[in-house]
Design a protein around this nucleic acid. Structure first.
Lengths: 199, 199, 199, 199
DNA sequence: GATGAATGAGCATTCATTCAT
DNA sequence: CATGAATGAATGCTCATTCAT
């Protein structure tokens, strides 16, 4: 019976889900192991059979999140059509962000408190920025970049823009609600006319 | 002897400075009242003469920070020359951010944990974004805005860009070090060509 | 295995007993949670699994005490023979007081410090006094009460007499030791000739 | 300039008055030296110039109270007219109790917590009871006492009755308000017919 | 005399973690 | 596997008391 989750696997999984929920409502720092276990229907002691720590379950969640996010950093650009690539990947990222807003919230919080998380996140971010930088550099070589745009700085700025907008919008919910399509479009426009030469 | 700080005033001030330092090294959540007091050269009990709480001293620091930041949200645009206004105020903000990077770090962390801080920050942010939105709307009326740019969304995006770049650069120090002038220039370029019509 | 106390139940019970002992020796106000836990053979943390507070365990003890005391306030008078009823219930009350002298001591102390306890006690006292008042009023109707006796005031006086005598005698131990029978007899005499008509 | 209070004397006196007020509102245990000093218009440090301790000021108040109360224990009975003596001294005591209800409240509370106060109070009480006992014994010799009344026990009962009634009435305010004359009269009646032979 | 800043012991309380059952 | 009782370190906070000014 391959591919069957053992009871233990299922328990671990429910603890992870429970942790996600508790972190969402109480925050990572303010959450208590006991509440996580209880939410999963376990006694507090059971938690430690599956995770060494409150930190361990948080790390597991963050790893899942960043593993997927890492994918984005490596999905190919559509050759010769930057605008389309930007739109598509932005849209995809915002959709992902929305579905995992709770985890992104934890990511931001945990980054403040846990060096390793901050590093994991930085690694992904660096990947993304490097890739954008390379893309802009290539555009420069092809004469498509505005003359005074600094690829490295611009890449960071554009990445920061999307990321923080997503955070303010989908985690803090401090921006008026919008359409993902509309936002992706606006982002694409700012990129296109902001750094690329007018057609 | 007018205008002389009493001993108590000086003690409170040193506790505030000590808190800032301890928060910087240990983070807000992980810091202990005792360490703050000790860093200021006091016993732990002395702390409570001046602040009811660890939270209270944090709030005092955040209020100072946001009070100043609030100024930025209300300094006037140079009429008729958006690019210049953008450059100037961005530069000014980045300088402020750099001098208070430790406090901005606390601001981000505390926002995760303390609703009131998050709200205070949101209020300032909303002010800034509203002001940019109005500026873009005026530009639209004057035919200076690119046709499909949505003023509200663009305003948020542009504000998010600067803010988060500053955070990654000056707090996390995860971006290659740059010149404030250079960064202000790049930001201004993206704004100018990103949302405004080509001259 | 019906009707078996769980380990937890037993622990709670020993903490309650320990509290009673510690309160007795140190007084309620001067007692420390840690000492209560230690006396029960627990670490201080264990206490908080069973009681939220030092006050909580005190309240539990007081509730037990007053619940029983409440019974006395509602046990029936022997019809038509006040002297006998007075003697019997006084005797019963003094016996109860003696067995629970330590708790009555806490009751008096806690009443000084804790409004709710004072109220609980007052409620029981009021019940008792009301009942005596009704009894005297009935006696008046039957022509058995001395003419100028005021039932309400006399009832309070007689109740106060027994209660305070018990306190001085059995809690403070400031009166020469006597026989419960003898004291009950004396109390009954004072009642009988003090408020009732001579036969 | 004999008989003039020095500044220091006046300060001490105001601290004593302040303590009385603070004890009344907060209770002895729950009161804080700082509040006492503040109420008297002093800094907290000043308190210690006049009293070694919070306990010291309480003791001073209790001594004043009990000194006066001691008088009562030694004022002469009106020869040959017990009823009148009882009425007069009861009335006097109740008046005193009413004027000093706040101090009696502290007396009860402090007795729970401070052995020495309890002893001081016990001494006065013993005096009073002894005196009543002697009076009853004399009455016995004169054939005025009811045959089966035990002078010592009865004395304690009668003293307890008045004292506790006063406490319930004037400190706890848990009894319906009455007239001091009326209460003195009722007490006298219970004594008279309760322990003395019918005329 | 008086101030009020500073101390530091003392106690309550929380919660991650362990472990016997 | 799971329970939940128990631990104890960690930390917050209070307040009587001291003392330099």
């Amino acid at each position: 019976m391959e591919n069957v989750l053992t009871k233990g696997d299922r328990s671990q999984r429910s603890l992870k889900i429970a942790a996600r929920e508790i972190f969402k409502s109480d925050g990572y720092t303010n959450s208590r192991v006991q509440d996580i276990a209880a939410r999963a229907g376990f006694s507090n002691g059971a938690f430690y059979r599956y995770f060494s720590d409150k930190r361990a379950v948080m790390m597991a969640l963050m790893q899942d999140l960043l593993e997927d996010a890492y994918e984005f950093a490596h999905s190919p650009w559509e050759a010769g059509n930057p605008a389309n690539s930007i739109y598509t990947s932005t849209r995809r990222y915002l959709n992902y962000y929305r579905s995992n807003a709770d985890l992104f919230s934890i990511l931001v919080e945990a980054s403040q408190v846990d060096t390793e998380v901050e590093q994991m996140w930085a690694a992904v971010r660096t990947d993304v920025i490097d890739r954008i930088t390379r893309m802009l550099t290539r555009a420069r070589e092809e004469g498509l970049l505005r003359p005074k745009v600094n690829p490295a700085v611009a890449a960071s700025l554009l990445a920061a823009m999307t990321d923080h907008y997503a955070y303010l919008w989908l985690v803090l919910e401090r921006l008026p609600d919008s359409d993902i399509d509309e936002v992706s479009d606006q982002i694409t426009r700012i990129w296109s006319s902001g750094v690329f030469c007018e057609d």
